[in-house]
Structure formats: C-alpha cells, structure tokens
Simulated scan of single mutants.
Amino acid sequence: MSRNQLLKLATTLVHTHGFTREALSRSVLTLPPGQAHPEPLSDLAVSALFGNGDKARKSLIQAWLDEGINHMKTVSSPTINEVLKARLQYNESALPHLPEAFALLASPEIGIPPLDPLPALGHAINIADEACYLTGDKTTQLAWYSQRLSLAAIYTAAELHQLKSPQTAASFLESLLTGSSAIKKSLDETALFGLYVMKSWEGIIRSKGIL
C-alpha cells in the first residue's frame, strides 16, 4: 500500500465525498480484497500520509487532476475535439466540488486572498499541452506556444460553461474550436489569458458563496 495508490483510490471517491480528508481516509476501504482495511484511516494517519489540514486536500485535488490527464489518453482516435471532450466528461461526476477545489488551490497558505491564478493557468495549459501531444501537433517556436495558449483558453471557457450548463458543454466546446481563430486572436497574450482565467474562476467561486 503506497501513498500514490491511496491517492488514486481516493480520486474515485470524489464524486461522493468531494475533495476532503474523509475521501482520503476511506481510500483504504477500497483496496483489493486481502488488503482493504476494516476501518477508514485515522485523521492522524491522513496527516502523516498526505499532509496537515488543507495540504492533504490539495494533494487529492492534484491527484484528481493528474487522473484527468490520464483519462484523455483513453480516446482511441484522438482529435483535439475528442480529447478535450473526454477531459470535460471526466469532470462530470465532480462538478459540484470543482469551484471549491479551485478556490482551495488558488488560496494562499497564509493570509487572505487575492487568489493565485497560477493553479488554474497550469491546469488549463497542462490539458492543452496533452491534447497537442496526443494529436501529434507539429508546431514549433512561437506557434507552439500560441497553439497551446489558444487551446487552453478554449478549454477554460468550455469548463466554465460546463459548471453552469453541463448538458451543453460538449457542443459549446465544439463551437469554440470551430471559431478558435477569433479566440486565438483575442487571447494570444499570456497576461490577458491569465486575467481571463482568474476573473472567470473568481466569479464562479464567489457565485457559489465560497469566498
């Protein structure tokens, strides 16, 4: 039984327990027969394995995000549309918990917000980069960055839309990809994209009453 194994198991409990220490504690109940524990981990054990307080929750969130990248690899005939759609589908069971998760990632360790935009930016860029890799993107130099920034902006917009209207997220993504040249033109600047991501997520988080 390793820490990484338990984190992976805990990601399967997010849909019922959220990004919580309880999900981490109950991960040992889902181990294979012969290894499963009869009771959840104690809070002390959760802290020892995953960190004190919210550090443990952040570990779970990051593990869940990593599994989302892995889920993109399950597309048999990868296209940009299909791999990004697969990533949106991965969100579906955890949608109610995502605003709180990103609020936690963006919150400083000490003190009061402003929120840190880097986790949300990194999340979108990682997904865009994986989508390009899986589809054999051959762009180089400035075009390499431009392509990923454009896709990151598109995915972020689709993910934010998904929180409000899950049923139309896939079609919204497709419409953005079809009109990606306009988005690319308006969001090619990294600073502008960062502001867009942060303001968008901050609006979602505040609308949920988390901040």
Rank of each mutant, 00 (worst) to 15 (best):
V83D: 08
V83R: 08
V83N: 07
V83A: 10
L84D: 02
L84N: 10
L84S: 11
K85T: 13
A86E: 13
A86H: 11
R87M: 01
R87D: 04
L88C: 05
L88E: 01
L88G: 00
L88M: 09
Q89V: 08
Y90I: 00
Y90W: 14
Y90L: 01
Y90K: 01
N91Y: 13
S93L: 11
S93I: 06
A94V: 01
L95I: 06
L95V: 05
L95C: 06
L95D: 00
P96S: 04
P96I: 00
P96T: 01
P96D: 03
H97D: 09
H97F: 15
H97L: 07
L98W: 10
L98K: 00
L98A: 01
P99H: 09
P99Y: 08
P99M: 10
E100F: 13
E100S: 15
E100I: 03
E100T: 12
A101H: 10
F102E: 00
F102Q: 04
F102V: 02
A103F: 09
A103M: 09
L104E: 03
L104H: 11
L105D: 03
L105C: 08
L105A: 05
L105V: 05
A106S: 15
S107F: 02
S107A: 12
S107G: 07
P108I: 00
P108L: 03
E109M: 08
I110W: 12
I110D: 12
G111C: 04
G111V: 11
G111K: 07
I112C: 13
I112H: 14
P113N: 11
P113D: 08
P113V: 07
P114N: 12
P114M: 07
L115D: 05
L115P: 05
L115T: 07
D116S: 09
D116F: 02
D116C: 09
D116I: 12
D116A: 05
D116H: 03
P117M: 06
P117S: 05
L118I: 14
L118D: 12
L118S: 15
P119M: 10
P119L: 04
G122D: 08
G122P: 07
H123R: 02
H123D: 10
H123N: 13
A124F: 02
A124V: 00
A124H: 10
I125G: 01
I125P: 03
I125D: 06
N126P: 07
I127W: 00
I127Q: 03
I127C: 08
A128S: 11
A128N: 04
A128M: 02
A128V: 07
A128T: 04
D129P: 04
A131Q: 01
A131N: 02
C132R: 11
Y133W: 12
Y133H: 13
Y133N: 14
Y133Q: 14
L134R: 08
L134H: 05
T135G: 13
G136L: 09
G136D: 11
K138H: 11
K138W: 09
T139S: 15
T139Q: 15
T139V: 10
